[in-house]
Design a protein around this nucleic acid. Structure first.
Lengths: 345, 345
DNA sequence: TTCCATTTTTTACATGCGTAAATATCGGGC
DNA sequence: GCCCGATATTTACGCATGTAAAAAATGGAA
């Protein structure tokens, strides 16, 4: 029952009586070979076990058909959602995607970039670590191959194609909403800033000033241990609520994971944030983390259009690969966020 | 400022005046080359841009140093946690890991397996889809290379090395706990069963019978639309609570994501599951999903030792690669679960 | 049957590097 | 200054496939 294993195309050629160049063309695209021959090859493949060597094929082709993707975290559903969008778009385009997670370590990120260059990938898609990223690495990537950044845009790397969210719009939107339905919100930030966090904070401040309110940012100062988003949100608000502060305020969290911690802190102090509670505590987030609808109370937030971001990033890379882009100014696409009104604010 | 790019080791050889075979040894392991020569090479590399071709190197080595990992879902923090554990263990062993997500599609899973075989990976680590996996594919993998399964163990593939959780123990543990502190629990299952779900259900039933209670399984029958775990848990309990059923029972959910939906349903009906509430509603889960501590109420559950599972899986693969294993019976390692008592039960 | 266009085969070279064997070079101890 | 052991270089071949060009085979229309 076990089929004989054949290792090389050469051997396969003699085994099924079709020349190696023809087999080569067949494995690249059966349409390049006459139907009758295709049938003969396929019949032969029924009887033996053979798969073309991935490395040997990629070694010679002018194009590898691979794109490399780097994301900073794996244990964050926002990035996995983005990754799914990228993968499905890439698969549709017939590309193989190799994903590497930098695990919030610049050294690992650099190693991943190195790997992609050594693979001659057709293009690279990276969601950077923020200020911790080694920008030299990204400059090298950009100078060597089609390169698109996603999600977070380093201020020192503005001449790169970028796809992300318009945080001025998205954060402005929810800030305006919070101001409209309750007391002007405070902004719950993170100590370890990334560029998105900074942009959101700036957008919050701008919108507050536009509406004539005094912006107030908390939680951005001291670096705490652990550093997980939820833990940070809970710790900051646990302290505040414990001192009787902020219990009747609106709190805009820099992202949903921080907001999850914030809601938890509220619950521990017997507080129930909610849009229904006139004048009382409200908590809102940013991103539309997949679990938002299932929290208690369900989290009001601004959704990032991760699906559009992933699709656009892939199409941009495709465009760059085909040599259409790269001429003038970098192409920057920002998608608007959209309000998700639920219970918490 | 831009360094000259060098494409081949041959060219590098003439550029920095060190022979190609020596360079080859250097890139495989600098320790194979005398310190003085290493210094000369590194000085040379400062002045030019060169990375060895990934495919060419892997094509000739007897061992590629790559292990392939397949996981069924990306948008599930349990699997990303497991993946992180695997990645860090593999990195420590000096292996490159290529991860593919099957997106709960057997065809994609099969394609990923094919890719791994065509890469001559040193070994494959797969968390299968459950009954939907194409077992033929996995048999081929097993027959071709070091192969270890994780997390879920197909009943028809028992002769494969496996690392996972002892669900009889873990589910028995929490079932016993629930019986001890409150009314005997019902089991909230999933329609689309995977093997773990079945094992947990069986363990629940066995433990209930051992303690002299009547097991009761709900939510396992009809297949609903959407099918996300949280949605399922919420839908089933929303219906039950709406009819006044189960409001004073203990509910053991097949996993934490279902439990998250269950807690949400409780909240929508004004119910607060809790271990403090004597005689009242209790909800428990399984897995110790990372967000459990931040739910309201915080979810009582049984933790899977994902870290140990990942480490062990990698060490098993390593052992298989070195040719030590594979002789007799398959090596099956099951880690015990441990109770995480929080608020919900 | 003959001829033409399409497809396949033959032949040869290319890809970038691993690896082995023989030869050359280096540095140090005597 | 000589000799030895450790390294480095030279040379040559192998890995599994892509690819191009020329020659041969195929198949259908006239």
């Amino acid at each position: 029952m076990p089929k004989p294993r054949i290792k090389t195309m050469e051997d396969l050629s003699v085994a099924i009586g079709v020349s190696r160049p023809t087999l080569s063309r067949f494995f690249q695209d059966p349409a390049l070979v006459k139907a009758k021959t295709v049938a003969r090859i396929e019949a032969g493949l029924e009887r033996v076990e053979y798969v073309p060597n991935f490395f040997a094929t990629r070694l010679n082709r002018k194009t590898t058909g691979i794109i490399g993707v780097i994301i900073p975290y794996l244990n964050d559903l926002f990035f996995t959602k983005l990754l799914q969008s990228v993968e499905s778009a890439a698969m549709e385009a017939g590309l193989t995607v190799i994903t590497q997670c930098s695990h919030s370590d610049p050294a690992i990120e650099a190693r991943a970039a190195e790997t992609f260059m050594s693979m001659n990938v057709d293009g690279a898609l990276v969601a950077p670590l923020g200020e911790h990223s080694d920008q030299g690495v990204q400059m090298r990537l950009k100078s060597r191959l089609p390169f698109v950044m996603m999600d977070s845009r380093p201020k020192t790397l503005l001449d790169v194609d970028f796809v992300g969210t318009n945080h001025a719009q998205s954060t402005g939107l929810i800030t305006e909403y919070l101001c409209r339905v309750g007391p002007p919100p405070v902004f719950l930030a993170m100590p370890r800033v990334n560029f998105n966090a900074l942009e959101r904070e700036a957008a919050y401040i701008a919108e507050m000033e536009r509406m004539g309110f005094e912006p107030e940012v908390i939680g951005g100062g001291q670096v705490r241990e652990g550093g997980y988003f939820e833990e940070h949100g809970e710790a900051v608000l646990d302290e505040a609520f414990g001192q009787g502060r902020l219990t009747e305020r609106s709190i805009l969290c820099v992202n949903d994971r921080v907001a999850i911690g914030a809601i938890r802190a509220a619950a521990r102090h017997g507080l129930v944030p909610g849009r229904a509670a006139k004048g009382g505590l409200r908590i809102a987030g940013h991103d539309d983390y997949p679990l938002c609808p299932y929290l208690n109370p369900a989290l009001t937030t601004v959704a990032q259009n991760t699906d559009a971001i992933g699709k656009k990033a892939v199409s941009l890379i495709l465009q760059l690969i085909s040599g259409e882009g790269g001429g003038g100014a970098p192409e920057v696409t920002l998608f608007d966020g959209s309000l998700r009104l639920r219970e918490s604010a």
